Amino acid sequence: MIHAIRAAAQELLAAKEERSMLTEDWPDLDVATGYAIQDEALRLRRERGETLVGLKLGLTSRAKQQRMGIDAPLLAWLTDAMILPAGVPVPELIHPRAEPELVFVMGKRLAGPGATAATALAAVSHVCAGIEIIDSRYCDYKFTLPDVVADNGSSAFFSLGPVSKPPSELDLSLEAALVEVDGKIVDTATGAAVQGHPAEALALAANALAARGLAIEPGWVVLTGGMTDAVEMKSGSRVAAHFSNLGSVTLTA
């Protein structure tokens, strides 16, 4: 099993083009093993010099959970190599998509079990806007839950906006984002799309990590999940997310 986990992590990290799902050759792959593959990939990333900077939640909207047949989000790791500074074009990827996110930067350690939205929010230093670039290694973004967990939640890059505020200054359930592609508004949502409130997602993350003996650490960045459906980033396209109180984030492909 250890060798299979290591081989799967290495294959997913090295993938430069679409590949078949792991479950096609590993039909009994389960979510717990998917997280073991994800953790092994993080170990390999750290081995090559990357630093763990936080985590992301995926499948936080009720609609996405229903489509996948689950009742809770998935978690994935973020490293410093995934940070995309402002003004830097999105590197060439397989089939990148962008989604707006409300992002927490942690001021205190947040550990479960028993974390609530209130205790989670009390551990947050500040909130900012972000865009996550996802890029599934699987053909046509088709996968099972164990597959996408193993693939680190389809993570690729993320970019943060220039405005940050303490959570006490925001109504995060009403904080809105407009998604613009090449000058045209294509979608809009509020923070309520993320588990009803992004702090609920943060608490869920802390409680899920506690089951693995882990916690959300001070200084970590936490991407709380896509507020809208992800939009395709074609070569030469420009995607922007405009937030009510947190400014704008713009990326070009």
Score class of each variant (00 low, 15 high):
Gly247His: 03
Met68Asn: 05
Glu232Met: 06
Gly196Ile: 05
Met82Phe: 02
Glu101Thr: 10
Leu214Ala: 12
Lys108Gly: 08
Pro91Gln: 08
Arg48Asp: 10
Gly112Ser: 05
Thr190Ile: 08
Ser125Asn: 14
Ile37Ala: 07
Ser244Leu: 12
Ser159Cys: 15
Val239Phe: 01
Ser155Val: 02
Gly161Glu: 08
Ala211Ser: 15
Ala210Cys: 04
Asp187Tyr: 04
Ser136Glu: 03
Ala122Phe: 00
Ala123Val: 04
Gly58Ala: 04
Thr23Glu: 09
Ala206Trp: 02
Leu110Ile: 06
Lys64Asp: 12
Lys184Ile: 12
Glu132Gln: 08
Val53Arg: 03
Val88Ala: 13
Ile216Phe: 01
Ser159Asp: 12
Glu101Phe: 00
Leu52Asn: 05
Ser244Arg: 06
Tyr138Ala: 11
Lys16Cys: 14
Gly191Met: 01
Glu17Thr: 11
Leu178Asn: 11
Val239Gly: 08
Ala36Trp: 04
Ala63Leu: 05
Tyr138Asp: 09
Ser235Gln: 06
Arg6Trp: 04
His197Met: 03
Gln10Ala: 12
Phe158Ser: 02
Met227Gly: 06
Ser159Gly: 13
Ser173Gly: 00
Arg238Ala: 11
Ile131His: 07
Ser235Phe: 00
Thr79Ile: 09
Leu214Ser: 11
Asp140Tyr: 03
Gly112Thr: 14
Arg62Pro: 05
Ser20Leu: 15
Ile216Asn: 03
Arg43Asp: 15
Ala129Ile: 10
Ala98Asp: 09
His242Ala: 12
Gly49Lys: 00
Glu101Tyr: 01
Asn245Cys: 14
Pro91Cys: 07
Phe104Ala: 10
Thr252Ser: 15
Arg109Ser: 10
Ser164Asn: 15
Arg62Asn: 09
Ala156His: 02
Tyr141Ser: 13
Leu102Lys: 02
His3Tyr: 06
Arg6Leu: 05
Asp28Lys: 13
Pro91Phe: 00
Asp25Tyr: 00
Ala215Tyr: 03
Phe157His: 15
Leu209Met: 11
Glu175Thr: 10
Lys56Gln: 10
Leu160Val: 13
Ala150Lys: 05
Thr252Val: 14
Val127Arg: 05
